[in-house]
Write a protein that binds this DNA or RNA. Structure first.
Ligand SMILES: Nc1ccn([C@H]2C[C@H](O)[C@@H](COP(=O)(O)OP(=O)(O)OP(=O)(O)O)O2)c(=O)n1
Ligand SMILES: [Mg+2]
Length: 655
DNA sequence: GCGGATCAG
DNA sequence: ATGGCTGATCCGC
């Protein structure tokens, strides 16, 4: 459970035979295809077929086995939470004061949303792939393969791991974070052997250049724009629109022209979301992809209508597990989230509950803008940690492990030096060949950045894991990945702290004005780091069809999930779902009819007291404008964090 | 402070 | 046979 959501489960079991299709559909809803963030495009192959292939390729692999284990764990947690919730009687036990408090909060969110749709989120389409196409244009070469235009055939960027896919490939279910070999199978099988997936090599350096090029264009519209990743930009058009005549002041026209410029000058298409707040704009940016835009008119009615139909999974921060979790409580879209807003506070902890409450009414943007906009100097500004991790052929001998760890530390040391960072906490990450992950950390009193110092600590931590693993009979100490992270940075550039705080304050007062960027605490120099592919060390020459390295990750957990869901029986979930619905109906009835009863001495674990506490927390968050004050060490320096939420929280007062 | 889980791109 | 990497947050203990 992280921020916005929590864990989830719900895919129970059922006799797979009778409800195979139903199970498939159901599972895919919990996954990425149906209700994931992505949109299902026309011409796609049946998701049941896609899922079946993924399952077939996956079953039996260590990776898949581990995914199943993880899924079962999350399911258990969901069950626990559900039982606890039911035992406590749900929100019917909530005191009226608490309910009133929640509603007051909701009102506040709804009333303070910005009154105009001037926030724009630009998200590049199939970014890495589009860059490859752009390159052909720039170099005058043909964007085709064996006489066929790349857009007409399934293409991905990445070999062992898919970084992104073009839209043709997406029809086959090929997506980011999918293992290359599975992507190949999807295309081969679904096309009955007629089509072969084309893999392009990743070129991070080039993507960074294109990204900068796009940024420079967008900065003409908002010099304070914020960039969340190479392909995502957060723009506030308020000033630009007020300035004068562009597009007769119509946001949609301005954005349309803006995108046209990016296309013409960078040869890259992008999509945009236009809304009163950045979070909403972010959600909208996905609705008319590719090469499209979606405008969400301001106003409570407009936004409530929009949110009502919105699947929770579309809310940034609600991932696969959270979606499942919510679904277990009968919550699939934001209307249901709103209907159950009281329950939310009984089910989740403060951060999560507050986040979901906002989501239920699209209540973002009321706070102040994250003046972190001033971080033009480099995104590392508010960086809190730095890490390196590498996958390799499994090793176990101390010397081999050590050797791999050294490589990691070497790289980490270089990056830290380049960024002028020093931290006092070292965290070692170990992934066994079975995909079981361990992390062990040690917080020291001195800040380090030297490869040797870091290695020394990391090595001890890894050996600690070795001992723990060897002490168990269910695991084998064969590791496929080693990672090292350093955080708890020292406060640098003395004196910067206070001024920065004032700086933020000033920005707020002046209404997000364009105070120049530049300052920055960042004593060091400048970065420009970038992770590169893996460059220097030739090692991974790695081309398409690669074989060695490769690895994967979540995102596809969805597929795994899915696969797992297929292989598992569904009756359990079904039953629980029914029971829950039943209970919900009863509760709802009770609610509407007799309003709500106070039942005094709540012996439920969650008393009004606890609830009040959670509300209180949320109030505090509100008052602080959700601005994160992260004191970096004793310096008491305040820095804005570059999380997606900070990026998205638009300024309320700015009108 | 630590470790696991989740999320995002 | 083959399943990445970087950075961040939340929560329970
Ligand atoms: N798990 C992931 C997801 C994305 N990326 C990289 C490749 C993408 O091209 C880029 C942008 O990510 P998006 O999620 O925006 O995906 P795309 O831009 O590729 O496609 P879309 O058109 O859906 O935005 O980030 C990655 O390396 N690993
Ligand atoms: Mg994109």
């Amino acid at each position: 459970m992280n921020h916005p959501s929590s864990s989830g489960s719900g895919d129970g079991e059922k006799s797979k035979d009778s409800v195979e299709v139903d199970a498939t559909t159901r599972a895919s809803n919990l996954l990425v295809y149906g209700s994931g963030k992505g949109n299902q495009q026309q011409g796609s192959f049946p998701k049941e077929d896609i899922s079946a292939i993924i399952l077939r390729c996956s079953s039996g692999s260590d990776y898949f086995r581990q995914q199943v284990v993880k899924d079962e764990k999350s399911n258990e947690r969901i069950e626990e939470m559900k039982m606890k919730f039911e035992k406590e009687g749900g929100s019917s036990r909530l005191g009226s004061a608490a309910k009133t408090g929640i509603d007051l909060l909701v009102d506040k969110y709804r009333r303070s949303r910005p009154r105009e749709s001037n926030k724009v989120v630009i998200d590049m389409d199939s970014f890495y792939y589009s860059c490859a196409l752009a390159r052909h244009k720039e170099e005058g070469t043909q964007p085709s393969h064996q006489g066929v235009h790349l857009n007409q055939m399934p293409v991905v960027v990445g070999g062992g791991m898919i970084l992104t896919s073009n839209y043709e490939a997406r029809k086959y279910g090929v997506r980011s974070a999918m293992a290359g070999f599975i992507a190949d199978k999807l295309v081969a099988e679904l096309s009955k052997g007629k089509v072969k997936l084309l893999h392009l090599k990743s070129d991070h350096k080039y993507y960074a250049e294109k990204s900068a090029q796009v940024r420079s264009i967008l900065e003409e519209y908002d010099p304070n724009l914020k960039q969340y990743s190479l392909d995502e930009f957060y723009i506030d058009l308020t000033a630009h629109l007020a300035k004068s005549g562009d597009g007769s002041g119509d946001v949609q026209e301005v954005v349309s022209k803006m995108r046209a410029r990016v296309l013409e000058e960078c040869f890259l298409s992008c999509s945009a979301g236009i809304a009163p707040s950045s979070v909403l704009a972010k959600i909208c940016s996905d609705l008319n992809k590719p090469d499209g835009q979606y405008h969400l008119p301001p106003g409570d009615d407009s936004i409530m209508d929009f949110m009502r139909q919105l699947d929770c999974r579309k809310v940034p921060g609600v991932g696969r597990v959270s979606q499942k979790f919510l679904a277990a409580f009968g919550i699939e879209n934001c209307a249901e989230l709103y209907a159950r807003r009281y329950d939310i506070f009984k089910i989740f902890k403060e951060k999560t509950a507050g986040f979901l409450l906002r989501a239920s009414v699209g209540g973002w943007g009321g706070e102040d803008e994250d003046s972190a906009a001033s971080f033009g100097a480099g995104e590392d500004q508010g960086q809190k940690g730095i890490s390196i991790e590498r996958t390799f052929n499994p090793v176990w001998k101390r010397e081999d492990v050590s050797s791999q760890l050294e490589r990691v530390c070497e790289r980490l040391g270089q990056n830290m030096a380049r960024k002028g960072l020093r931290g006092r906490r070292i965290t070692a990450k170990v992934k066994l060949a079975s995909y079981v992950v361990f992390s062990r950390s040690k917080t020291g009193r001195v800040h380090m950045n030297e490869k040797e110092e870091i290695f020394k600590v990391a090595d001890e931590l890894v050996e600690r894991v070795r001992k723990e693993v060897e002490a168990r009979d269910d695991l084998e100490f064969k590791i496929r990945l080693l990672g090292v992270r350093v955080d708890e940075f020292e406060v640098k550039g003395g004196g910067g702290g206070g001024s920065i705080e004032k700086f933020f304050k000033k920005v707020e007062e002046e209404g997000g004005g364009g105070v120049g960027r530049g300052e920055e605490v960042r004593g060091g120099e400048e970065d420009d780091d970038e992770e590169e592919e893996d460059d220097e060390v030739e090692d991974d020459e790695e081309v398409m069809l690669s074989l060695s390295q490769s690895q994967q990750d979540s995102e596809h957990v969805d597929d795994w999930k899915f696969a797992k869901a297929l292989q598992v029986r569904y009756d359990e979930e079904q039953k629980q779902f029914e029971r829950m619905k039943e209970r919900e109906r009863e509760r709802e009835q009770e609610d509407t009819s007799k309003s709500r009863k106070e039942l005094g001495g709540g012996k439920g674990k969650l008393t009004d007291e606890e609830l009040a506490r959670r509300l209180q927390k949320e109030e505090e968050l509100w008052d602080r404008g959700r601005k994160r004050k992260d004191k970096t060490a004793k310096g008491g320096e305040v820095k804005k964090q570059k999380t997606i939420f900070d990026m998205m929280n638009g300024k309320g007062k700015g009108k």
